[in-house]
Simulated assay, not measured.
Amino acid sequence: MTRIDIDIERLVLRGVPAEFAEGIGPLVAERLSQLATADRRGDDPPHWAAAPRRARPATDLDTLAAQVARDTWASTRAQIREGAS
């Protein structure tokens, strides 16, 4: 079974309050891992990945981590898939 693990050493989020920026790296890494693994396996993405783009700022770590992961995966998916080929 394929599982893609992602490790984020340092994550910089501009405009994010310090209390959110602290400790969000592992949450984003886990969400990215879930997206990449599902994509690689051809599975449906996790339920949180289908959430629409928020019109207002996220107010909790889980929501912010999911949004950062979705945005990151959307912008890097093609390059990662090309590199894996």
Rank of each mutant, 00 (worst) to 15 (best):
F20V: 00
G15E: 09
I24V: 14
T2L: 12
R56P: 01
G15W: 07
A74T: 10
V68L: 06
E30R: 13
R77S: 15
D62E: 14
V28C: 02
P46I: 01
E82L: 10
G83P: 02
E22H: 11
S33K: 03
A84M: 10
E22V: 11
G15P: 04
A29M: 03
A51K: 08
R70N: 08
E82V: 04
D44M: 11
A84N: 08
I6Y: 03
L64P: 02
E30I: 00
R54I: 00
D39Y: 04
T63H: 09
P46C: 09
T72G: 05
R54M: 09
R31F: 02
H47A: 15
R31P: 01
A49I: 03
I8P: 00
L61M: 10
E30G: 08
P17E: 15
D71W: 03
G25Y: 03
A66N: 05
G42P: 05
L64A: 04
G42L: 09
T63P: 02
D39W: 04
Q79K: 11
L64K: 01
G25H: 02
A65K: 00
Q34A: 14
F20R: 00
I8G: 01
E82R: 13
G83A: 13
L64I: 03
E19L: 07
E9I: 06
A74W: 08
D7L: 13
M1G: 13
A65D: 00
T76G: 06
Q34L: 11
A65I: 04
T76S: 11
R54D: 10
R54A: 15
T2N: 10
A21Y: 05
P17V: 07
R53K: 15
L61P: 01
A18N: 09
P52E: 15
V16I: 12
A66Y: 04
Q79I: 06
A65W: 00
R14T: 14
D7K: 13
R54G: 06
R81Q: 12
L32I: 02
R54Q: 14
S85C: 08
A21E: 12
T37Y: 03
R56M: 11
D62S: 11
A65G: 02
W73D: 05
R10M: 10
R40I: 04
R70D: 07
D43G: 06
